Simulated assay, not measured.
Amino acid sequence: MSSALTQEMSKPHETVTPVESDVGRMPPRARIVASAIELFRQQGIRGVGVDAIAEAAESNKMTLYRHFGSKDDLVCETLKQVSARREQIWRDLEAAFPDDPLAQIRGWIEEAAECIFNDPRGCDLANAAIELKEANHPAFKVIMDAKKVHMERLTSLCRQAGTKQAEQLADALMLLVEGARVCGQSTGAEGPQQQLKRACDAMIAAYISP
């Protein structure tokens, strides 16, 4: 995959807080969500209060609560937007490699590797799931729904690529990617995550005949 395409596909995972000159051009609701996403990534959901979010968005608590009934509602919206950006990556891959499911799978692995190597903060959805351990937190449904759609997309591509064991291959690839994310956060730049693409290639070869 070309570096230009990789950079383009990685844009949804980049910092989304607008630069100061752009803040005033965004609607208040968009400013609040963008600021919340970035603050949650930097400090964790529990570590950020609504006052800090309102200040970063150049707004106030009254406006924040007018758009979101609670901080939990805002958390759910940020995770929905993160999930939507992940879906955009799949659409970009489909446009880049039409009618080539295997190339789309490899493109997803490439994009995941780029994020793991270049963004030590990891996956927003996974981080939120770990931090918000309460089973009844409304964000859990958002995370579960997003992960389910993601797995369905990957499984469908594995099936289209020619394996009758699509679910097993999709599970194996997801385990490798998610495991690499954890290694990237815990073992340093030269950890086992450096072998992600090689391990995924071996897994694909084990399930899909040339």
Rank of each mutant, 00 (worst) to 15 (best):
I89S: 01
R31M: 07
D72E: 14
L93A: 06
I37H: 11
L39G: 06
V33Q: 05
R85N: 15
F40I: 10
N60H: 13
A52I: 08
Q81R: 13
A34L: 10
S83L: 04
A30D: 13
L93T: 01
A54F: 08
T78D: 00
T78N: 01
D51N: 15
A34F: 05
G44N: 05
L93P: 01
H67I: 04
K61D: 12
R91S: 07
R85L: 11
E94S: 13
E87H: 00
E38D: 15
R66E: 02
I37D: 07
Y65K: 08
Q43S: 15
A52W: 13
R86S: 10
N60L: 12
Y65E: 11
Q81P: 00
V50Y: 11
E94T: 08
E77V: 14
F68T: 02
V50D: 13
R46M: 13
S35P: 10
R85K: 15
E38V: 08
I45T: 10
A57W: 13
K71H: 05
R41Q: 05
K71W: 03
I89K: 00
D72H: 13
Q42I: 06
A52D: 12
E38Y: 12
K61A: 12
Y65D: 10
F68V: 03
K71M: 09
K61P: 12
V50K: 11
L93F: 02
R85F: 15
T63W: 10
S70G: 13
